[in-house]
């Protein structure tokens, strides 16, 4: 029974990291219909920023996790400049597919640029302890502080984000743009600014996810965003892409499936089960768990 609870906790923690990344995917997809392949690499950027700012932060006497603030700023800047330099010109000229290729090229570019920077290099870097070590025991189950902080922070962020998109003017503008760009322009919304803002928020979430990932697996390398981003994207699609609560739900489901297959079936087959669940769910509900099946107009 304690294995079950331990697995559940691990799954929730992993799931909330996936959910945070998936939110970035889903927001960008919702607004410009582009699978942002470079999003995984924003996590890598965030990870390195955290690693490099931790010594500075510690010297100032603040706890290590404060470095996430720097990561948030850097990631948001990287995300917004990606949109400005690469995606916007292509979006004006090309089709959806060319935008997709640009995203792939951007991801490749970021990964290899990081390797070309001498302080980063191709070898992994190890981070120091981010949250306090140890944890609270409930009977036979241990809740590590890392887990507790991860769950709390991601829950708070999701709540804030949801309120932001539902209640504020900027959030409403974002939802308008994703529904109908032309109509949004007519209503006086600056579409390009809104898209830029979306990229900023999505990338900032990736930075937070990077911190949580590092808290658990204290190692960064230039290709760390690959599989992490892929699974997050899968979570976004599973929940129904473009839908914010869907990304959260999808992330948690994927995290739980992964941790349960790892501890009960086989650790090397975990990916197979993650994707198998995905395929089964999508065959039953083709628009994702929370997605609505829109009938086609003729």
């Amino acid at each position: 029974m304690s294995t079950f609870f331990q697995t559940l906790i691990v799954g929730l923690r992993l799931g909330s990291i996936y959910a945070l990344i998936a939110l970035g995917y889903t927001m960008v997809y919702g607004i410009i219909r582009l699978i942002n392949f470079a999003h995984g690499d924003f996590i890598m950027v965030g990870g390195y920023t955290v690693i490099f700012t931790i010594p500075l932060v510690l010297r100032l006497g603040a706890p290590a996790w404060v470095s996430v603030l720097a990561a948030v700023v850097v990631c948001a800047l990287v995300g917004m400049s990606t949109e400005l330099i690469a995606y916007r010109p292509v979006r004006k000229k090309g089709t959806n597919m060319t935008a997709l290729i640009t995203a792939i090229a951007m991801s490749l570019f970021l990964e290899n640029l990081a390797q070309a920077i001498p302080v980063i290099g191709p070898n992994p870097k190890v981070s120091t302890q981010i949250f306090r070590a140890g944890g609270i025991r409930f009977g036979t189950v241990t809740m590590e502080y890392t887990t507790i902080f991860t769950l709390i922070i991601s829950a708070v962020i999701m709540l804030v984000l949801y309120t932001f998109t539902q209640k504020t003017r900027l959030g409403r503008a974002m939802r308008c743009v994703s529904e109908d760009k032309a109509a949004a322009t007519l209503m006086g919304i600056n579409v390009n600014h809104t898209i830029l803002l979306t990229f900023g928020i999505g990338s900032a979430l990736a930075a937070v996810a990077a911190l949580m990932y590092l808290a658990q697996y204290p190692k960064v390398y230039t290709t760390m965003g690959g599989l992490l981003g892929l699974k997050a994207f899968v979570s976004a699609v599973l929940g129904g892409i473009g839908i914010i609560p869907g990304a959260m739900l999808g992330g948690i489901v994927i995290g739980l499936v992964e941790s349960f297959t790892t501890s009960y079936i086989s650790s090397s087959m975990a990916d197979t089960f993650v994707f198998l669940i995905l395929i089964i769910v999508l065959v039953i509900k083709p628009a994702g768990i929370l997605g609505k099946n829109v009938g086609e107009k003729v």
Binding site: V237, I241, F275, L278, I279, L282
Partner: peptide, 8 residues
């Protein structure tokens, strides 16, 4: 959705 299934 199809893309993600083939990816899977």
């Amino acid at each position: 959705y199809l893309a993600i299934i083939t990816l899977g």
